[in-house]
């Protein structure tokens, strides 16, 4: 291998490490926002706003770890299919159970419906992408 090729490989490694470091920083930043919502001043915000904001941050963090750190973004699409199919099935089951047992707070119906369909929708969207994706680099 030539020196130029070696240098290129080394640069691509550094670039890859930076992607992981940036992802970790973003995750840390989102966690800081989550914790900030616990301060009294923000705590006076309506419950539906708090729950929606925290849920959004939770979903983004979930997808960042699964996509970047667990390599689902670049890996063989069969792993993504397995993960998202399980999530698509599990979420409505748990949500309907929560509905049926009446333990959900009295939020607006629209928010409840959003909670029921948004996560499987996002997961399904992701699954759709993974069908198009190749077999990835990590075998």
């Amino acid at each position: 291998m030539t020196t130029v090729e070696n240098k290129e490989i080394e640069e691509s490694w550094v670039k890859q490490d930076w992607v992981y470091i940036k992802t970790a920083l973003i995750l840390g930043f989102f966690t800081a926002i989550e914790v900030f919502t616990y301060f009294e001043s923000v705590h006076k915000a309506p419950e539906w706003l708090m729950v929606t904001t925290l849920s959004f941050l939770m979903v983004v963090k979930f997808f960042l770890v699964a996509g970047v750190f667990m390599h689902l973004k670049d890996d063989n699409s069969i792993f993504t299919k397995m993960m998202t199919l399980g999530m698509c099935i599990a979420w409505p089951v748990y949500f309907i159970m929560a509905f049926a047992l009446g333990f959900l707070p009295d939020w607006n119906v629209i928010i409840k419906v959003l909670f029921l369909f948004l996560p499987p929708g996002v997961a399904g969207f992701w699954l759709g992408f993974s069908f198009k994706g190749g077999d990835g680099g990590h075998h």
Binding site: E34, V35, Y38, E47, V51, L54, S55, L57, M58
Partner: peptide, 8 residues
Amino acid sequence: FTIVYLFP
């Protein structure tokens, strides 16, 4: 962390 600790 979100559901158990942070949710109101």
